[in-house]
Design a protein around this nucleic acid. Structure first.
Length: 247
DNA sequence: AACGTGGGCAACCGCCATGGA
DNA sequence: CTCCATGGCGGTTGCCCACGT
């Protein structure tokens, strides 16, 4: 697999580049009427001279009715910065915490605005106090390592320690959400076998085997047969340690 | 007014994961 | 188990526009 693979579709004779309003209308009308069960077949059925991938991208990034338009608010930008420091370039994970925003949009905002802002901040803070700690202890490096290793199916056990940032709602990353709408939502919790939430007074562990069954557990609540983590109490919990035991 | 340059963003490309045959 | 089709993701490209000279 991989090398020499045929393209996703026959691109000869297909339109490329910017979408015209007529194409948008046609795609939107088709999806509203028939849905998008099969992206590859869709353009032909909808009478569009486009690759299926192109249609999917156009729908997800621009035409979906729940897309939020306009500039990012300061709160949204701060959230992106914080989540990026935890997750790295996991744009779809970050997007799942920002309703109405797409991974592509977030990636663009990061690359054009936020990256500069963060590096300026870091320059400032490192020159003012080199011993000052960031909100996340080794979060970026360790998480990158974790995701990379996970794909290779290694057997080692990796611990990721995240110092809890009170102003960020981390719960969206832990949601056991199978109600996947256009692939926007993703299940962060399922990547891990165990989530440890610790405070100065106590430490609680939640394993993937018990967080789906322990309904009495204060961290998890059940809604419509899906399990959701409750908002972590900022005063009670200082950090989350996510432990992934490789399968 | 014409031209050059840089930033912003939509769209594309290629790789990987997943699920079905 | 293997192969293949498809969807999803992240990196990159290239067009467009605003701004400066």
């Amino acid at each position: 697999m991989g090398r020499g693979r045929a393209p996703c579709c026959e691109k000869v004779g297909l339109n490329k580049g910017s979408w015209t309003p007529a194409e948008d209308m046609r795609l939107m009308a088709y999806i509203q009427k028939y849905g998008h069960g099969n992206w590859r077949a869709l353009p032909k059925q909808a009478g569009l001279l486009r690759c299926g991938k192109s249609c999917r991208l156009r729908w997800i990034n621009y035409l979906r009715p729940d897309i939020k338009r306009g500039n990012f608010s300061r709160e949204e930008e701060d959230t992106i910065i914080k989540l990026h420091s935890l997750l790295g370039n996991k744009w779809s994970k970050i997007a799942s915490c920002l309703p109405g925003r797409t991974d592509n949009e977030i990636k663009n905002v990061w690359n054009t605005h936020l990256k500069k802002r963060v590096s300026h901040k870091e320059e400032k803070s490192s020159s003012s106090s080199s011993s000052e700690q960031s909100n996340v202890k080794n979060g970026n490096v360790k998480l990158d390592n974790q995701f990379g290793e996970s794909r290779k199916g290694s057997q080692e056990k990796i611990e990721i320690e995240i110092e809890f940032e009170p102003s960020v709602d981390m719960s969206c990353m832990l949601i056991n959400d199978n109600d996947d709408i256009d692939g926007v939502h993703s299940n962060f919790a399922e990547d891990f076998d165990k989530v440890v939430v610790s405070s100065s007074s106590s430490t609680n562990s939640y394993s993937s085997s018990n967080y789906n069954t322990n309904q009495e557990d204060p961290l998890w609540s059940i809604m419509d047969e899906e399990y959701y983590p409750l908002m972590l109490d900022d005063d009670d919990h200082e950090k989350i340690i996510i432990i992934q035991q490789k399968h």
